[in-house]
Simulated scan of single mutants.
Amino acid sequence: MGSFKGHIVPGTLFLVIGIWHIWCCVVRYVSNPKNFRVRVWNPVPGFGGRVKYLELYVIAVGAFIDLCIEFLYSTHVKIFVNGVLNPSHMNDFEHSGMLLMFFIFGIIELSKDKVSFLPLPEGALCFIVSAAFTAEYLLFYFHSTTHKGLEGYYHLILVLLIVLCIIATIAGALMPTSFPADLCSGISITLQGLWFYQTAFTLYGPMMPDGCRLKGNEISCGSTGHEVYGELLANFQLFVQVLVVLVGVTGAYIYMRSKNLVAQLL
């Protein structure tokens, strides 16, 4: 069982990184389509280069803070009980493992680009990111917390979006000049962030479907009909999110394309 904050925090990280990835991908392609290359992360321009690595700091620091929340705060530092991992907080330990993978990626990337300690090619970094998403996929697919009913359906959609992230990042490694692969990576990360938000507001917030409620640590629906209605509502919510993201991507491309054409004419 999760919580509102437990979905909002990672959702915010995925959403911010995903939108930034989409924007930078479109800008780089429109500016120079012939020399376009897939990038795992994108530097922030301006300010004399002082915020160049902001994306990597957001990934590393954000993952580390969330890791501390899951591993220390949520468990009340009761990590071991009778010499074994506290069985009451196995889901928190699993979340910590997922966040650790993204933290490691952020540190590896900073080591490569800022201090030139690990001179890895971009394709290898794509595989490292795909490994982090794979760890996330395994976490939610083989979760120690059994998701059933409506809650299980929302988490099933989340798992499918994580699979898209894995496929997109691997495609970026195999096709380093592919604009669609890089763009799909940003879109899938953005959709994952949005779905974390949707899950938080639906299952633990004010958007709970009629006939269903949060009781104790479980989502219960009054009848099969109410549960089916909730699942159909989830499908519609996902459709709206996909539509919004695609419209946003199209708008960003049209804007950058027109701006580039005006710059060429001048």
Results as ranks from 00 to 15, higher is better:
Phe14Cys: 04
Ile219Ala: 00
Ala252Ser: 04
Glu136Phe: 10
Arg257Thr: 11
Tyr253Pro: 07
Val30His: 00
Lys114Ala: 14
Leu67Thr: 08
Ile157Asn: 07
Phe140Trp: 11
Leu174Thr: 08
Asn260Met: 13
Val44Pro: 00
Ser111Thr: 07
Leu138Thr: 10
Ile128Trp: 00
Leu15Val: 10
Gly48Trp: 06
Ile69Trp: 10
Val242Lys: 07
Leu194Tyr: 03
Phe179His: 09
Val245Cys: 05
Ile128Tyr: 04
Phe80Pro: 04
His226Phe: 07
Asp92Phe: 05
Val262Lys: 12
Ala252Cys: 12
Ile8Ala: 05
Tyr57Ser: 05
Pro176Met: 09
Gly222Val: 12
Ile254Gln: 09
Val40Ala: 08
Cys184Pro: 00
Leu164Met: 10
Cys165Asn: 11
His89Thr: 08
Leu238Lys: 07
Phe4Gly: 11
Ala60Lys: 05
Pro180Met: 10
Ser31Met: 04
Pro45Phe: 13
Val247Phe: 12
Ser178Arg: 04
Gly49Cys: 02
Tyr137Ser: 06
Pro176Cys: 03
Leu214Pro: 01
Lys148Thr: 15
Ile59Pro: 02
Val115Ala: 09
Ile166Asp: 03
Leu203Trp: 01
Thr145Ala: 14
Trp23Arg: 09
Thr134Ile: 06
Gly205Cys: 13
Val244Trp: 03
Phe196Val: 03
Leu183Asn: 03
Phe179Ala: 13
Gln192His: 05
His226Ser: 04
Ile167Asn: 03
Leu233Trp: 11
Ser96Thr: 14
Gln198Glu: 09
Ile128Leu: 13
Ser130His: 01
Pro180Leu: 10
Arg39Val: 04
Ala60Val: 03
Lys148Gly: 05
Pro206Val: 13
Phe102Lys: 02
Glu122Pro: 08
Thr75Tyr: 04
Ala263Gly: 10
Ile189Phe: 01
Asn82Thr: 11
Pro87Thr: 07
Asp113Gly: 08
Ile104Glu: 09
Ser74Met: 14
Met256Tyr: 13
Thr250Asp: 00
Ala181Tyr: 05
Leu156Phe: 13
Tyr73Phe: 15
Ile79Arg: 02
Ile170Phe: 01
Ser220Lys: 15
Leu183Glu: 01
Phe201Leu: 12
Leu15Trp: 04
Gly222His: 14
Ala181Gln: 02
Gly230Asn: 00
Arg257Tyr: 14
Met90Trp: 06
Asn32Gly: 11
Trp41Glu: 00
Ser223Leu: 06
Leu100Ile: 12
Leu160Glu: 03
Gly149Phe: 06
Tyr73Leu: 13
Ser116Gln: 10
Leu72Arg: 06
Gly248Leu: 08
Gly106His: 00
Leu99Gly: 01
Tyr197Val: 01
Val58Gly: 06
Pro176Asn: 13
Leu156Glu: 08
Leu214Gly: 01
Tyr153His: 10
Pro119Trp: 08
Thr250Ala: 14
Val51Gln: 06
Phe36Asp: 06
Met101Ala: 13
Leu110Trp: 07
Trp20Asn: 01
Glu55Gln: 12
Ile17Ser: 02
Glu136Lys: 13
Asp66Phe: 08
Ile166Ser: 01
Val159Ser: 08
Gly216Leu: 11
Leu13Phe: 06
Thr224Val: 14
Leu15Lys: 03
Val247Ala: 14
Val81Arg: 13
Gly251Leu: 06
Leu125Ser: 07
Met208His: 07
Leu246Ile: 11
Asp182Asn: 15
Ile128Arg: 00
Pro10Phe: 03
Glu231Met: 15
Val38Gln: 07
Trp195His: 04
Gln237Ile: 11
Val44Asn: 05
Leu243Lys: 06
Gly49Arg: 08
Ser96Lys: 02
Trp20Gln: 09
